[in-house]
């Protein structure tokens, strides 16, 4: 069984193949990132956009929508979480709080 980043199966087990699964990203307003809001099935990209509009933006939740087939998303594996993120764990000097600055120095 293959699955996408979101875990869902890529194709149906039924006799007739399901419409592919798409992941939907919405930009809430200008100046913000597109954010993942959910997924839906559609026969093609155009239908995915229309369905995304109807399902995820019924109340002005967005000014722009991205849809991408779930199977096209490459994802890190939860099993490799520790080794994958280890390189950043021991680099505390990357955070501003690592550095002690006297309280009376302004605007720091």
């Amino acid at each position: 069984m293959t699955s996408n980043a979101n875990g869902a199966k890529a194709a149906g087990a039924g006799v007739q193949a399901e419409w592919p699964l798409y992941e939907v990203f919405v930009r809430g307003k200008r100046g913000l990132n597109h954010v993942h809001v959910g997924s839906l099935h559609a026969a093609d990209d155009q239908m995915a956009l229309l369905h995304a509009r109807d399902v995820y933006t019924r109340r002005n939740e967005g000014v722009s929508i991205w849809v991408v087939k779930s199977v096209d998303i490459a994802a890190s594996s939860p099993d490799e979480k520790d080794p994958l993120f280890t390189p950043s764990n021991d680099k505390v000097y990357r955070h501003p709080t690592f550095y002690t600055i006297p309280d009376d120095v302004p605007h720091m």
């Binding site: 069984m1 199966k9 149906g12």
Partner: peptide
């Protein structure tokens, strides 16, 4: 009524992440 359809779809999507297909 359209909202109810939307709610069903949000939940079906959540359920599909558990490895069961929409058609099933």
């Amino acid at each position: 009524v359209q909202d109810e359809a939307g709610h069903g779809l949000y939940l079906y999507s959540a359920c599909e992440t558990l490895g069961v297909s929409r058609d099933e």
